[in-house]
Write a protein that binds this DNA or RNA. Sequence first.
DNA 1: GTTGCATCCTGTAGTAACTACAGGAGCAAG
DNA 2: CTTGCTCCTGTAGTTACTACAGGATGCAAC
Lengths: 140, 140
Amino acid sequence: MAVITNARAQSLSIGEVSRETGVNIETIRYYERVKVLPPPSRTQSGRRVYGREDKRVLTFIRRGRELGFTLDEIRALLYLDAPGKVSCAEVKEIASAHLASVRSKIIDLVNLEGVLANAVARCTGDAAPACPVLDILDCR
Amino acid sequence: MAVITNARAQSLSIGEVSRETGVNIETIRYYERVKVLPPPSRTQSGRRVYGREDKRVLTFIRRGRELGFTLDEIRALLYLDAPGKVSCAEVKEIASAHLASVRSKIIDLVNLEGVLANAVARCTGDAAPACPVLDILDCR
DNA sequence: GTTGCATCCTGTAGTAACTACAGGAGCAAG
DNA sequence: CTTGCTCCTGTAGTTACTACAGGATGCAAC
């Protein structure tokens, strides 16, 4: 019965899904182990078989990681999305918190960049008695 | 002979040097284990005793970490500084490489911030059928 | 039908830079 | 002499992977 549907629901080996999603094979197995990716079905000999939905989830995870979400956050996002469509407000909360932490990281890095750029600019590259780069690190 | 000098070279317990440098006790022992901080002298009962120079090095490490240098980079900086004052050019090289990586991290984060801020702004917080936050993560 | 290679499996250990115990000993004050 | 603080070593946990080791399977060519 479900034969035609099954035929359309492409089945991929771990190597194939890895190539198609850009997620490393070892990483896919790791995601399964830490329960961010549900365990796929298996062939009789025990090889993993992935379908369309697995690929979608894996791509979701990859995008999330690229955007700097932790696996915990991604898990939360996935499970919010899954059972009964919990609430968009919760999604917004996770994303807002993440946005705030990104912004504070940017501020830190920009400060840091100023300090470093200044020291490097003042550095002659000669063996001067006082190196400006070492100076900013040194206790004062 | 060196009695007067020793008297001036204050000796601190690990707890004291921790308080004065702001580096956690466990972290100090860790730095010793991974050879970024030289092993200090000990009391007869085996407790670590730190001097003025140790404190200076520890502060250097802390500043370096705050500025995002890795322990490997800091070790290099310390050893460049130490044996025969190698060359300021090498210091400049390490710092410049680090500056470049800081700049590229800033660019990544600013991009990310734009994407996230946009999604969060478009999110109503209601249980909408299509959540803009989940959409940017989802495969398209 | 077997040889050979690619791919897959599990399980463990390594990475960076710590942090957090467990279990024991030293030390100073009351 | 007991209480409580600090210290000691050594090991294991954290995050998000990556890298094996050692073995099984699948498939194609000869």
